[in-house]
Design a protein around this nucleic acid. Structure first.
Lengths: 257, 257
DNA sequence: TACTTTTCACCTAGGTGCGAAGAT
DNA sequence: ATCTTCGCACCTAGGTGAAAAGTA
């Protein structure tokens, strides 16, 4: 399996393809946040070796960047709403600029309830030439504004985290692998101006097969998590689910102090 | 004072200028929805008489259209968030098409809490050649999903409605008053293609003075409503506030059944 | 006649990779 | 040598009023 590359810029660049998930098994009447963060896969820095067309370790990772959580703009919404549609993260942008456009960098560490309140940044800060893993979080919304602080990567009952190993990518400021460039140009509508009318020698369909993130079967990921049936671990065709047991997401009578 | 005209189309047309309000006096830690609806000014249908440049009554109003509420897309958010920025309704569209793009027309009558849940339409249905008054609603978010049904125009404690008589307008499918056309072309960036480099004989600044909705001093409306000081009635320079006493908006310890 | 719908050129706004230039 | 930044042409997406055509 070959990982793809994602451009990062100072102004922020969208991921392409964007992460899209289909969700099932939520309590229809419960409110949830859905969020994404992106965590390092390892502690290494990479470089691309052209003659072998491979990424090679080039030292240890740079010092960590301020962690960010991208809160899906439809948050909060009921389980019913989330399950009715494919949830797309296409507004999220990747940047290598640690200076926030607004300044409030670390407030994201505070209460998840307040997160909705912060001016929501759609930028996630990453280092170039590193390998990363996007993660999707489903966070049950608590009644009231309980001051239970939640970390940048929220953990606790009522929160569940999903990782899809196929979506690991390497950050770059300019594409290294020309096959990746071809896929981006061919599939991203905004790059239509660079398309080559005469199809190059290797079929693009074959290319798509080689790059996990691009396979249409993966463009929609399914969370299978039926309340009452406390399934755990693998669900759906390719998705690995990690986190609290499923029943924690399903119900929540609203109680108050 | 001369009212402006707003185009309505089947697909929906934005208002220009858009309604923009500045809010103060909310409880910073309380969650609120902010919404807009548009109500008839009277029971009449109008026609434009060119030779006198005036709108004249042309009969009784057409039968009512399905009422709609445009929920500001930042809703719900805390008082702090709402007060930090100017709240703009520039995504709202006016239409004369009673057939909903999605179909769920009347669900808007249900609980305000569920409104956040519905696929939010940005369209408000109006009749052409009628006079309308936009209204802004500030609605305190209740804890939990209490099933207290709220009407299309929410009324009750925790809800407050603001009307600004200067923002009354007449709906049209094509502009009647050519001065309105000139103002739209001169001020709306999307109409730049129709601008006349040689300024027409009457200065546009003078035109703006004649049309209340356009005066820059009104493009930002201020809600003055300090909790604890139960002011009522007129606030700010031009805004008339109508609704529940102000203190009802300011505090709300979260209690449950 | 009086109003509405459709199509269109012309804009705003912003997402692409390219290639030259810059940085280390 | 290797990586990053910037300006650019070329796109997508969609908001304008004009004008012609449609409706009743």
């Amino acid at each position: 399996e070959i990982g793809t590359e994602m451009i990062i810029t100072k102004a922020g660049r969208r991921m392409f393809p964007a992460m899209r998930v289909k969700i099932s098994g939520l309590d229809p009447h419960q409110q949830y946040y859905i969020a994404m963060d992106i965590v390092p896969v390892d502690n290494k820095r990479y470089r691309y070796v052209y003659h072998s067309s491979k990424w090679m370790v080039a030292g240890n990772a740079d010092s960590p960047v301020p962690p960010r959580v991208y809160i899906h703009p439809d948050s909060p919404a009921s389980g019913e709403t989330w399950m009715r549609q494919v949830v797309s993260f296409d507004k999220l942008k990747l940047t290598n600029n640690e200076l926030d456009d607004q300044g409030h960098v670390r407030a994201i560490y505070t209460d998840i309830v307040q997160m909705h309140d912060l001016h929501r940044s759609n930028q996630i800060i990453l280092h170039s030439m590193h390998k990363y893993q996007p993660r999707v979080h489903v966070i049950r919304k608590e009644c009231g504004e309980e001051l239970s602080p939640v970390r940048a990567v929220p953990v606790g009952e009522g929160t569940r985290t999903f990782s899809f190993p196929e979506t690991v990518f390497t950050t770059v400021t300019a594409y290294q692998n020309q096959q990746i460039t071809r896929l981006k140009i061919d599939r991203n509508p905004f790059a239509k101006g660079f398309r080559d009318s005469g199809r190059n020698r290797m079929g693009l369909e074959a290319l798509v097969e080689s790059y996990a993130f691009w396979r249409p079967s993966l463009r929609t990921l399914t969370f299978e998590d039926i309340p009452g049936m406390a399934k755990q671990g693998m669900h759906g065709a390719h998705g690995a689910a990690v986190g609290a047991p499923s029943h924690l997401l399903s119900t929540s009578p609203c109680s108050s102090p």
